Amino acid sequence: MNRSAVTEFLLSGFSDDRDVQILHFVVFLSAYSIGVLANVCIIITVALNSHLHSPMYFFLVNLSFSDVCYISTTVPKSMATSLTNNKLISFAGCVTQVFLVVTFVTCEFALLTVMAYDRYVAICHPLQYRLIMSRDLCIQTAAASWLLSGLHGILQTSLTFNLSFCKNNTIEQFFCDIPQLQKLSCTDTAAHQMLILVLGLILDSFCFVFIFVSYGFIFSSVLKISSTQDRHKAFSTCTPHLTVFSLFITTAMFSYMRPKELASPTIDLLSAVLYTVLPPVLNPIIYSLRNKAIMEGVLKISKKFKHFIA
């Protein structure tokens, strides 16, 4: 028996009850619309305001683009499943979904790590900021984040679909999730699970330690500032990033590192919503509300749009 024994998978979704399916569709449509529109709004705002053409907003645009891609990988398919009650997803479609989810999750983490370094340079070495965070370095680090994320996605996807899938093809999730696919495999997945865990820990530990050390230096420098106003201003530039990073880490840890006592199909579904839907929706809102320049840029574009309509 090999992989060819299964040519398609079934996504279990949230419920077989038609009313619950409609409710799921409406909730996911609302979340998807907010997530896409808010992130696109940030991208347009930064693009149309020359005073926002700085390294911090360059990485923010990359994060917003990643969020749009991330939420678009799982939510539209889940909405279509609820609306049509067609739970089938092809083998190739499942492979693609796994690759994209891993790639965009990794890219989010990588970009948040780079953004922590950007804040470190801006606060700890303000006079050399433009020299260190040059245009070439920004492009190179962003490109490296996307490239390494893609390679990580290829590696994780290859490892997952090297497993054999025989009879059971029902995925207890609303998208193709690696842990759920491991449960379906008719071969021993112990070594596979350990390898994926080690790869994830290496990547996550590096990013987490890098961010932790960066903010250690940042807080140390900020506390040395004598002016309360300047200290508050320095902290305010870090608050959105710290909030977004905390949200990302909290939802991911709850999804993959929660105790077995909390493991159940319902909790698995809800935890998946936390780390696939919530961050892309809340990230642009957090940055908009906590960043005065973004808010001013959005308001300026809104006024221009209203004037154009009028």
Rank of each mutant, 00 (worst) to 15 (best):
R231N: 05
R290S: 09
S302D: 03
N39S: 01
L37H: 08
P259V: 06
S227N: 10
G216V: 00
M1P: 15
A144R: 00
Q182M: 11
L83Y: 04
Q21M: 08
D177C: 14
R258Y: 09
Y256N: 04
S221W: 00
D188V: 06
S72F: 00
K303Q: 06
D118W: 01
T73N: 05
F219K: 03
L242C: 12
F161I: 04
V46K: 01
A143F: 12
V20P: 07
D17M: 01
V121W: 05
I196G: 05
D17K: 08
T81G: 14
S226E: 05
F217K: 10
L60I: 00
I211Q: 10
L151M: 06
L151V: 08
F165M: 14
I139N: 06
T228E: 02
Y57C: 09
H241Q: 14
D118H: 05
Y275D: 07
N169Y: 13
V36S: 00
R3K: 15
F210D: 07
L88S: 15
M295E: 08
Q180Y: 02
P76N: 03
I22W: 05
L289A: 01
V6H: 12
M295C: 05
D67W: 02
L131E: 09
V273K: 11
S82G: 12
A310F: 09
S226W: 07
L278T: 09
A80D: 09
S220H: 07
L201A: 02
S236G: 00
M295R: 13
G150D: 12
L29Q: 07
F305Y: 03
I218P: 12
G297C: 10
F210R: 02
N39V: 00
Y215Q: 14
L274P: 05
F99R: 10
I285P: 12
T84S: 06
S145I: 02
V61H: 11
L155I: 07
V273T: 11
N39W: 03
S90Y: 02
I43W: 13
A92L: 12
S221H: 02
A272V: 00
F219W: 11
L88H: 15
I294H: 06
A143E: 05
C138A: 08
I44G: 00
L112D: 08
I294M: 07
V105K: 01
A122C: 01
S30K: 00
P76F: 01
M1H: 15
A142F: 09
T81F: 14
F28N: 06
L137M: 15
V102M: 02
Y275S: 12
L203V: 10
L247G: 13
L159D: 07
C41Y: 04
F104Y: 10
S288A: 02
L52G: 15
M257T: 11
L223T: 03
I202F: 14
M1F: 13
L63E: 06
G200M: 04
S246L: 04
I89H: 10
F14D: 05
N39M: 00
Q180S: 15
A293N: 04
C138M: 06
L199D: 04
F175N: 13
V102E: 10
L37I: 12
F219C: 10
T187K: 03
A110S: 15
T74Q: 11
M115V: 06
E8L: 13
L48G: 00
L299T: 01
R119C: 07
F28T: 04
L278Q: 09
V105C: 08
L37Q: 01
A5Q: 15
K292S: 13
L52D: 08
T243F: 01
D177F: 15
R119S: 04
S134Y: 01
